[in-house]
Simulated scan of single mutants.
Amino acid sequence: MFDRPISSDPEVMQTRQGGGCLTLFGLPFFLAGLFILSLPFKLFPVEGEIPWYVALPFGGVFAAVGAGLMFGRSGLIIDRRQKTIIQWWGLLVPMKRTEYLLDSFRRVTLSKEERDSGETSYTAFPVRLEGEGAVKPLEIEAPKNYEPARHSAEALAKFLNWPLADSSTGAQLVREPDRLDEPLREQARREKAPADWATPPFGTRIQVRQEAGATVFDLPPPGLSLTHYLQLGFGLVFAGVVIYFFLGPLLKLPMPGVLRYFFLGFIGLFFVLGPILSALRSVLAQTWGRTRVVASREWLRVEERGLIRSKVREIPAAEIEELVLPEKKLEIPLERLPDGAGLPPNSRTMALVQWLSKWAPSPQLLARSDRMTLEFGRGLSPEELRYLYAEVKRILAE
């Protein structure tokens, strides 16, 4: 959003949302609402009558939703000269405005959150302005993908000349505004960090070799987590329910043989075999799939080879700004005394926590540029992950 501000004033950052595709999406709702509202007045020839107390609420809801999508607009105005931040909303023009003092905030933050939209949950990457003390953070936007959120956060930090604190990986990384586009190689030169060769951990499953001037890391399959077992179990249970409650009674219904076989084939293919094959495909991909990481001074490439198809993604080394090693943190609950003091967890709690930690998704390395994020190393032990991190960073920083 903020990588394309609409203001021509260098002291003002102004953005606007709404219109475009939302207008086309809202048009059917708006027209349907108007049509339902007109039924009591018999403006169109239709069979039967619809009372006004039915048409008014239903038509009004459809028309309101459509009007909001078609004409709804929102925006943000950040004025460095007046030291103000204005958020507004309205129908085509600003109707409601909320003003904040720019001096109340000191930095731009980017995080990762799981949000609930009612019936479903999704991952969001909120971009906020934060201050000191009791100042409530001001959320600017919350894209569902990391890259657009990163673009907006960096544009804000550059415009305001504020540091950017990125905690989307779990550990906070603070970058100064004049170093937001600094490549990893330049960071290593500026920090003058020694680039020593890392020692492979004992019993490592990573195979390393040199190939055409690059270092190739062949990684083992990531293995199964609790999620994959649950997915497979759900597929089997769902297929069993469909067979018992639908296919069985369907065989007893009087119908032509061709029609019976059509329904049996349709339900069996999409509601029995489909879930089972999808779960098996996910399990086999985790146990048989291979990942190859190719690192050189020129680029970083990740090749994922599955059972059916492969995927190759690549970032030029000059564009990589971050190589992140997320730490897998496990919160251990403490029993509390009446005075609030914490006690070490008992043996049962410890055993449960340790068992659950084995099934928790393992962390993986993140290589980030402004346009792409590469993820690799899932399923490796902490020692193997640190070794891979050190070697890839050494190669990219050369």
Rank of each mutant, 00 (worst) to 15 (best):
A171R: 14
F159H: 02
L173C: 14
A171Y: 13
E182A: 06
D181I: 12
R175W: 04
A165Q: 12
E186Q: 13
D166H: 04
K158F: 08
A165R: 09
D166Y: 00
L156I: 10
L164C: 02
L180D: 02
D178W: 08
D178S: 12
F159W: 06
G170K: 08
S167P: 12
A155W: 00
T169W: 06
L164H: 02
L180W: 01
L160G: 03
A165F: 06
V174G: 00
E186R: 12
R175N: 13
Q187T: 08
K158E: 06
P183I: 02
R179Q: 15
Q172D: 13
E182F: 07
L180V: 01
P177A: 10
R185H: 11
R185L: 13
A165L: 09
P163K: 07
N161R: 14
K158R: 12
E182I: 04
W162D: 01
F159G: 05
N161F: 10
A155D: 00
E182R: 08
Q172A: 14
L160R: 01
A171F: 14
Q172F: 04
D181H: 12
E182T: 08
N161D: 15
D178C: 09
P183C: 00
D178H: 08
L160V: 05
E182V: 05
N161C: 14
A165G: 07
D166R: 11
G170A: 08
A157M: 06
N161Q: 14
E186H: 07
L180F: 03
P163S: 05
A157S: 03
Q187R: 07
G170I: 08
D178A: 13
W162Y: 04
P177Q: 05
L164S: 02
R179S: 15
S168G: 06
G170D: 01
Q187V: 07
P183H: 00
S168M: 05
S167E: 11
V174E: 05
L173W: 07
S168T: 02
E176F: 13
A155G: 04
L180M: 04
N161G: 11
S168C: 02
N161A: 14
T169S: 15
R185A: 14
T169K: 12
K158T: 09
R179L: 15
D181M: 13
A171Q: 15
E186T: 05
L173M: 15
A165W: 07
L184C: 00
S168V: 02
L164V: 04
Q172C: 14
L184A: 01
P177L: 07
D181W: 08
K158Q: 10
S167H: 11
D166P: 03
N161W: 09
S167Y: 09
V174K: 02
R175L: 10
T169F: 09
A157R: 06
F159Y: 05
